[in-house]
């Protein structure tokens, strides 16, 4: 029953996208974090990871009409595109065959899933907690800068930081 439900869940937005490509937005939302997690664990910098992720989705959108449902999850098809994009990127960087092989060993399915879940959990934090987490660890701003943006004291921002990290840790523990 679960397999059938999952198939139906995926099939409808895929067929909708093949009919009207503007409906690709739903597939994008469902799979963005997994694709990014797959790529980010295999490239050195966030900028590279974002560029290559963008390339994957542009290629996916361009060729969605060619996708044929064969029972495998749609994400598998996206991983295939991502693998090609990564290969091209590494070859451009001049990686040796041994290095190419080693690159594929980074980040298995569990790690990718964990990255996707974490991204969703960050999105679901309370607004001020989310702001602190994003500014501090993704954008690497100081406590002072974040306090000024939120109109709060530095002490209050540190407490938000503590509560946000605890919340993420606890929820990740429950999800996995």
């Amino acid at each position: 029953m679960k397999t059938v439900e999952r198939e139906d869940d995926e099939r409808l937005p895929i067929e909708a996208s093949q009919g009207e490509r503007v409906n690709f937005a739903e597939l994008y939302e469902q799979n963005f974090h997994r694709v990014y997690a797959f790529i980010s664990r295999r490239v050195g910098t966030r900028d590279h990871a974002q560029d290559l992720t963008a390339e994957v989705f542009h290629q996916a959108l361009a060729s969605i009409g060619n996708f044929r449902w064969q029972g495998a999850p749609f994400i598998s098809w996206l991983y295939g595109i991502a693998a090609n994009v990564l290969s091209a990127h590494w070859q451009k960087c001049g990686r040796s065959p041994a290095q190419l092989a080693a690159g594929w060993d980074q980040g298995g399915p569990e790690e990718i899933e964990r990255g996707a879940i974490l991204a969703e959990l960050v999105d679901s934090l309370l607004p001020d907690q989310r702001t602190v987490i994003v500014r501090r660890f993704i954008e690497q701003r100081s406590i002072r800068e974040v306090a000024k943006e939120l109109g709060r004291s530095e002490g209050a921002v540190k407490q938000l930081q503590l509560r946000a990290l605890e919340s993420l840790r606890d929820k990740m523990g429950r999800k996995i």
Binding site: R41, Q50, G115, L118, A119, V122, V134, F137, I138
Partner: peptide, 8 residues
């Protein structure tokens, strides 16, 4: 782990 996420 959060540090590895993309810019929002």
């Amino acid at each position: 782990e959060v540090r590895a996420l993309p810019y929002p």
